[in-house]
């Protein structure tokens, strides 16, 4: 072969179709925005029903997670995600999809080693690094507060 690795890498890049960034980003914006609007509606409803701010927020998350689980179960979430990309990935509904889909997929390997063990195969890192970051923040906060007396 006449090409070096880096020359071939450049040629391969040239021949590989690029994602339609403009369309993808627009779709992500629209769908992601719509999911957040749905969240806002839920938040307003829960607040109207008299729950406090924090509880309303939790109930909103729980409801969105539930809706995402149902749509994932019917195979609808991934159909939308194909077009929406990060629009369905970044909201909490995407987190729910990442938990529910392996739970469904690995049912054939049993409820313990399949569903139970693999449920966090995609979403696990989010919890691991979210918790780790928040713990680091907590320790720093504690030290700062202690130094200030």
């Amino acid at each position: 072969m006449k090409l070096t690795e880096s020359e071939y890498g450049r040629l391969a890049k040239l021949r590989s179709p690029n994602s339609n960034v403009l369309r993808n980003t627009a779709m992500a914006f629209l769908v992601g925005g719509a999911i957040c609007c749905a969240g806002q509606a839920l938040l307003n409803i829960y607040k109207m029903l008299g729950t406090d701010e924090i509880t309303a927020g939790t109930l909103t998350s729980v409801t969105l997670v539930f809706l995402s689980a149902v749509m994932t179960g019917f195979g609808l979430y991934d159909k939308i995600a194909k077009h929406a990309g990060a629009g369905t990935l970044v909201p909490i509904t995407g987190f729910a999809n990442a938990v529910v889909s392996p739970a469904m997929e690995f049912k054939t390997e049993g409820y313990v080693l399949g569903v139970g063990a693999k449920i966090f195969i995609i979403a696990g890192p989010v919890i691991v690094y979210g918790l780790a970051a928040s713990a680091v923040y907590g320790v720093i906060l504690f030290i700062v507060r202690a130094m200030r007396g």
Binding site: S19, D78, K82, G94, M104, I122
Partner: peptide, 17 residues
């Protein structure tokens, strides 16, 4: 898919390549 990539109902976007 389940061995190399993602669960069937996972919402991923496949690149055009």
């Amino acid at each position: 898919e389940r061995q190399f990539r993602f669960p069937e109902t996972y919402g991923g976007q496949r690149p055009p390549s």
